[in-house]
């Protein structure tokens, strides 16, 4: 488990760093919301999931999509807007999805995934014959969204097997948690009678342990659970900030926030030789992904509205 957790944390870190380069080179248009610094949460939670469980993700979703099992090569092709991408170039960074892997999509609206995950998990219960669960990832900003709180109420009322994972990185874009959250984040879960805990979101092993317990209780039919993972976003809210150079975090906080690095925490538990061989394999994989993404064909403009409907529609 230690090696696989490290591998995923490291893969997400290097994937994101390569993405930032591709944003700079213009291969990725529209920019991205880098997940750098928060990798342990996606890696730890998804390690507690099965292939047939589902997740909903966020605008900062690359880590969740990769950790749930999407192919990094087709994921990068998607970010570059290519027909070979997961969504055939129709989704991009904020909508990357792979339904064959239970990835019900990154989502461009903060807090939107909670109700979708709850509905999917309820459907699993209705369909019977299994103990599948759903996980909804969201940030601290989402805990002020009504639709998420409504979803938590529904999940608790109907004992839905869904895990709500709040990645508290301290900022909703530029607004601090203390300026946006009255009461506490876990207090919201308590209000609905949903068991919650707050854990170190920089340590993938800690996240894995907490997520495993929550997922198992959901599988046993005990209803939803809530996990607050404390973390720090190492990079910008969005790569747009690299040009805009907005300042909203104290310089000393930016230094101290990076002292505990998920990659180093997970990697420190491995034998250096094993770590090196994992790193090398990841570099080779990402080299292949970048080559594939940058050389894949762009979609034909005449297909711009393909897939708009599931069943045929007259013009």
């Amino acid at each position: 488990m230690e090696a696989s957790l490290y591998r995923m944390v490291r893969l997400i870190r290097r994937f994101e760093e390569r993405c930032v380069e591709l944003v700079r080179s213009g291969d990725i248009i529209g920019g991205i919301h880098p997940y750098i610094g928060q990798e342990a949460i996606a890696a730890g939670v998804c390690a507690a999931l099965r292939f047939d469980d589902i997740i909903t993700s966020t605008h900062r979703g690359h880590g969740h999509v990769l950790a749930k099992g999407a192919d990094p090569i087709r994921m990068l092709a998607e970010l570059c807007g290519k027909v070979t991408g997961l969504n055939r170039g129709r989704g991009g960074s904020m909508h990357a999805a792979d339904f064959s892997k239970g990835i019900f999509g990154a989502n461009g609206i903060v807090g939107a995934g909670g109700a979708i995950a709850t509905g999917a998990a309820w459907a699993f219960l209705r369909q019977g014959g299994g103990d599948k669960v759903a996980v909804s990832f969201f940030g601290d900003g989402a805990v002020s969204q009504g639709v998420l709180l409504e979803a938590m109420n529904l999940a608790a009322l109907w004992k839905v097997p869904v895990l709500f994972v709040c990645e508290n990185n301290g900022y909703a874009t530029t607004l601090t948690v203390s300026e946006s959250v009255a009461g506490t984040i876990c207090g919201r879960a308590s209000a609905f009678g949903i068991p919650s805990s707050t854990v170190d979101g920089m340590d993938a092993a800690v996240v894995f342990e907490a997520a495993s317990a929550a997922v198992e209780s959901a599988r046993r039919g005990e209803g939803p659970a809530f996990l607050e993972c404390l973390t720090y976003r190492f990079d910008a809210h969005h790569t747009w900030e690299h040009k805009a150079r907005v300042r909203y975090r104290p310089a000393e906080e930016e230094v101290s926030g990076r002292l505990r690095d998920p990659v180093e925490i997970a990697g420190g538990r491995l034998d250096p030789a094993e770590r090196e061989s994992i790193d090398e394999a990841i570099e080779a994989l990402l080299d292949e992904a970048v080559a594939f993404a940058t050389t894949s064909p762009a979609p034909d403009p005449s297909t711009a509205l393909d897939y708009l409907y599931g069943s045929a529609v007259l013009p």
């Binding site: 109700a115 979708i116 509905g119 309820w122 459907a123 369909q127 409504e150 979803a151």
Partner: peptide
């Protein structure tokens, strides 16, 4: 019968539909 949570139950339905309902 749902609570008075239109936004919540509308996206709840989206999730259920994505899962085959």
């Amino acid at each position: 019968d749902t609570p008075l949570s239109e936004q919540g139950f509308t996206s709840f339905a989206t999730g259920a539909a994505l899962a085959g309902m």
